[in-house]
Design a binder for these strands. Structure first.
Length: 499
RNA sequence: GGCGCAUUCGUCUAGUGGACUAGGACACCGCCCUCUCAAGGCGGAGAUCACGGGUUCGAACCCCGUAUGCGCCA
């Protein structure tokens, strides 16, 4: 196996791509890119009962969003097209026929009812479940009867009666099964569609896959696959079973654990580069300290030797932190662009869209280090855009002072805002500190009051920079509005509205 | 039930026989910075390395067994 590495991601289009699936895709992709090999996408759509509308599009857009590109597969084609199993049926049917002729497989006419009864019986007698080979030695007469009944058979693979099957797993080492404990599994269903096992094995061979890297849940089917390769006279690829991604209860991550589809994370405002970095660390690590790694670093340092064996719980807290790290590392322009794009795709309730990009860009430096996700941006910046603030009188109350005193203090602030020749953070800070000293108010008290007057809330970015970004006019109107709210004067000369 | 895999702080992990009084990160707590919130800095708490036996002068690390969890077979 000295040729180039060829790996694949082979999802079933049964729903939106799940983070566990995408992590498997990521590891395959990282392995391919780190070894200068190829990454192939193949759609395993042979289970027609579970097909979901739009699933293929969802899978591909999930990959694209994460920046996982494929060398062969849907949309890009390739030398082994088609890359949809539903369009490759003849390959599977022909192989199944060949296996039947060679005595390595046989047709089975057992009804679902009989199989169910058989399993019930086995469970009752505490035997290991599995097909009892009733149809392996079917007599010509019985066969004739079944045919006359018009029953369509399935094709079962005949497992070797004895011996051991050993998988030399890249991640787990050698794992051995006794083949007589494995039953004769179906390879071709009665509707002529292959099962996962047959299609997967044949396609991996035809597509010249060198390494099958898949989740651990497939480990138990690998001896069947090896037996199939053997019966077909094909050389198997190398196998590597990756640890699974688990929910907080340590069971396989699923819908009931909350958001699991990659596109949900996109909608929640996570950055693809952060998700990629985070997923790479679920079951793999570079060393005892390196955590923040961009795509190039991951490609450069990824290796299967450092893949962990045990399953990993998906820890949202850490993803959130990492997303914040990536947000903080961006330039202001970059972040502004991302926020704008995010708002275009998922318009927030506030601020009203579209937004002035230049104004947004001036806000970004104040919001950046406070964001965990892109979704936070709307809430964090909403007050910058509001045309009218609503005050709760309690919020405006200056501790230990009555409304009139508070209003008087705000009047002083207002005259500073109106009177400053230069309206910037530095100047405002100077003046407001002086005012505080004069009024005998601490910074906490005075600035807290002004903060509520100017932003409508008790929490905001640093006050003076915030005021500078808001601009003199907005500050003036808002402070007036606050004074009115305090004094109850409703008929002011100027309405406290308009930004 | 059968088969298989796994098991180091709550979570992700480092660790491949002596540098382990087990390191880092997230989360948590405290202090500093400070106009609030963050971010940042410093510090703290948190793992008898699942348990029990061995092997060895010495074991988180090697061997055996047990337990638990998970996966697959439906």
């Amino acid at each position: 196996m000295n040729g180039p590495v060829r790996v694949r991601y082979a999802p079933s289009p049964t729903g939106l791509p799940h983070v566990g699936n995408l992590r498997t895709a990521l590891f395959n992709w990282l392995f391919a890119r780190s070894r200068g090999g190829q990454f192939i996408v193949r759609i395993e759509d042979t289970d027609r009962t579970r097909l979901a509308q739009g699933a293929v599009e969802g899978i591909l857009s999930g990959l694209r969003w994460l920046g996982i590109d494929w060398d062969e597969g849907p949309e890009v084609g390739g030398p082994h097209a088609p890359y949809f199993q539903s369009e490759r049926l003849e390959i599977y049917q022909e192989a199944a026929q060949r296996l039947v002729e060679a005595g390595r497989a046989y047709r089975c006419y057992c009804s679902p009812e009989r199989l169910r009864e058989m399993r019930r019986q086995q469970a009752r007698e505490k035997l290991s479940p599995g097909y009892d080979r009733r149809c392996l030695n079917i007599t010509p007469k019985e066969l004739e009867e079944r045919r006359r009944e018009g029953r369509e058979p399935v094709v079962r693979f005949r497992m070797p009666d004895s011996g051991e099957i050993t998988v030399d797993d890249i991640i787990r080492g050698e794992v051995t099964w006794r083949s007589e404990l494995l039953d004769d599994f179906v390879i071709l269903k009665s509707d002529g569609f292959p099962t996962y096992h047959l299609a997967n094995v044949l396609d991996d061979h035809h597509m010249e896959i060198t390494h099958v890297l898949r989740a651990e849940e497939w480990l138990s089917s690998s001896p069947r696959h090896l037996a199939l390769y053997d019966a077909l006279g094909l050389a198997p690829p190398r196998f590597g079973h990756l640890p699974m991604i688990l929910g907080p209860d340590r069971s396989k991550l699923s819908k009931r654990h909350g958001a699991t589809s990659t596109l949900e994370y996109k909608e929640m405002g996570y950055l693809p580069e952060a998700l990629v970095n985070f997923m790479a660390l679920l079951g793999w690590s570079l060393d005892d300290r390196t955590e923040i790694m961009n795509r190039d670093m991951l490609v450069e340092s990824f290796s299967l030797e450092r893949v962990v064996k045990a399953g990993a719980v998906f820890n949202l807290d850490k993803l959130e932190w990492m997303n914040g790290v990536y947000i903080r590392a961006m330039s202001h322009e970059e972040l502004a662009g991302r926020v704008l794009a995010y708002w275009r795709e998922y318009p927030p309730a506030e601020p009203p869209q579209p937004v002035d990009p230049a104004y947004l860009l001036s806000i970004i430096p104040l919001a950046q280090e406070r964001l965990k996700t892109l979704e936070d941006a709307a809430e964090r910046s909403a007050f910058f855009f509001r045309s009218e603030l609503e005050y709760e009188p309690k919020g405006l109350a200056l501790k230990g002072a009555d409304a009139a005193t508070t209003a008087a203090a705000l009047e002083r602030v207002l005259s500073i805002v109106e009177g400053r020749p230069v309206f910037n953070a530095e100047a405002l800070e100077q003046d407001l500190r002086r005012l505080g000293a004069e009024l005998g108010l601490s910074g906490r008290q005075l600035f807290g009051l002004v903060r509520v007057a100017v932003t409508g809330g008790k929490v905001s970015p640093p006050l003076f920079q915030t005021m500078e970004v808001l601009g003199r006019e907005r500050c003036r109107r808002r402070i007036r509005g606050a004074i009115q709210a305090l004094t109850g004067a409703s008929g002011g000369a100027e309405p406290a509205s308009a930004p």
